[in-house]
Simulated scan of single mutants.
Amino acid sequence: MNYVYILKCSDNTLYTGWTTNLEKRLKVHNTGKGAKYTRVRLPVEIVYFEEFEDKKDAMKREYAIKQLSRNEKLKLING
């Protein structure tokens, strides 16, 4: 399974990524070994995710979410 996720960082910014293992990826981010963006904004928490069978679909969705404004991302997170 492939996942697209949104993290809420300690400074209340949002980070979007994709992975094949949500738990493992969250641990990597929170140990400072994840994305450069999140390293200085720890701790982070997963506030939203979607599942995809195909990696290509997950990557397309990640790109689409990254194009959204902060307000649009917050609407997505809040349903």
Rank of each mutant, 00 (worst) to 15 (best):
N30D: 01
K56Q: 09
I6F: 08
K60A: 13
L26Q: 10
I6A: 01
M1Q: 08
V47F: 10
I77Q: 03
A35L: 07
V28A: 10
E45I: 12
V4Q: 01
K8N: 05
M59I: 15
K73E: 01
L14G: 02
I46M: 09
S69C: 11
D57T: 07
N2V: 06
N71W: 10
N30I: 13
R39V: 05
N2L: 05
I6K: 05
L22C: 03
L22M: 13
R61W: 02
V44H: 07
N30A: 06
L26S: 09
E45C: 11
N71L: 15
L26C: 03
K56S: 11
E50H: 11
G34N: 02
R61Q: 08
Y5F: 14
K55A: 12
R70W: 15
Y5W: 06
F52A: 01
R25P: 04
T31F: 10
L22K: 06
A58H: 01
Y63L: 07
P43A: 05
T31S: 14
G32V: 10
G79A: 09
K75D: 05
K8C: 11
K36E: 09
Y5G: 00
N12G: 05
G32P: 00
E62C: 04
I65V: 09
R70E: 08
K33N: 13
K33M: 13
K60G: 02
K24F: 15
E51Y: 06
G17D: 01
R70L: 14
S10H: 13
L74T: 06
